[in-house]
Design a binder for these strands. Structure first.
Lengths: 152, 152
DNA sequence: CAGTATTAAGTCGTGCACAACTAATTCGTG
DNA sequence: CACGAATTAGTTGTGCACGACTTAATACTG
């Protein structure tokens, strides 16, 4: 009781610091800021890094499925993928079996980048400084929150 | 143990779904997306809403202090404040005692908007669907994470 | 007091993020 | 088979977000 305020935290407070949404927004930007210098060495932005994570996991994926995985619109992905293509990390080609769909495939350079990226998650995990239990709890709460807020 | 994967969650995994950073990024966008229709009725974007929260709490604040509260650069705030000024919600004026500093003051319309905004936190809190304990835990973890990642 | 360093706000360029829309292709139903 | 509905990528316009830089004002130091 010594350092905490007596304010209720869930009511209709308009105080910035009571808002979970602000804690979330600030944390998200702080984490991407922490990634920035590491990813800069790889020539990637943070959203580009997320795209590469998906591609290292599953090469030859459609723009649509990439959007589903990352929860991003094609209007965000299209220019982003164009930049990655210009950087020589991937190719785009219309699928023969469905000409509406575009398959994203890693180039050799894109596949090779995976090795250099291997140290990034550990470095960030380190900087985050959460215990394994806190990390697991945070992920669980964030997924629950995302699911609740997305549905209904 | 029935639904959880056997994967370690903290090691150097490059799997998207193992990354706390992605859970955070996705949750943050999902929450702002949920705010969007509510704030649209007020004529605000989400970052503009955050600025208004600060101003309702403390009117006549410098751009600098606003940036400290929201953890945003002047290069982000300057155009944002210009739009809010154009929308008639606030005024900007150089401080007499320090001509480098600019004081942001609510207009009457800006102050009045507070009433209409009063229902927003409750509606969002509702949509988030977390218990008070989960809400508190999430805020605590996000603040710890932000502090860890920002320092050192 | 002079001259440099620091601070505050703002501009500019790049890259998301998303709504609204378009064009091309495929699906589905009569 | 025909033709309207649905699906897939992509374009356009607006608004963040931030690094690098600029300008103006104030603080600091010899």
């Amino acid at each position: 009781m010594s350092t905490a305020e007596a304010e209720p935290s869930q009511e209709g407070s308009l105080l910035l610091d009571d808002q979970l949404c602000f804690a979330l927004y600030a944390a998200s930007r702080a984490v991407t800021a922490r990634y920035r210098p590491l990813l800069e060495e790889l020539g990637l932005t943070y959203p580009q890094y997320l795209v590469m994570l998906v591609l290292w996991e599953q090469d030859s994926i459609s723009v649509r499925d990439l959007g589903t995985a990352l929860q991003l619109e094609s209007s965000t992905l299209s220019p982003l993928l164009k930049r990655l293509e210009a950087g020589g990390l991937l190719h785009r080609e219309r699928r023969a079996e469905d000409e509406r769909s575009v398959a994203i495939r890693l180039t050799d350079a894109g596949a090779r980048l995976r090795e250099r990226a291997g140290t990034v998650p550990l470095a960030i995990g380190d900087a985050m400084g959460l215990s394994p239990e806190q990390d697991a709890m945070a992920k669980q709460l964030l997924r629950l929150l995302t699911a609740n807020v997305t549905e209904n």
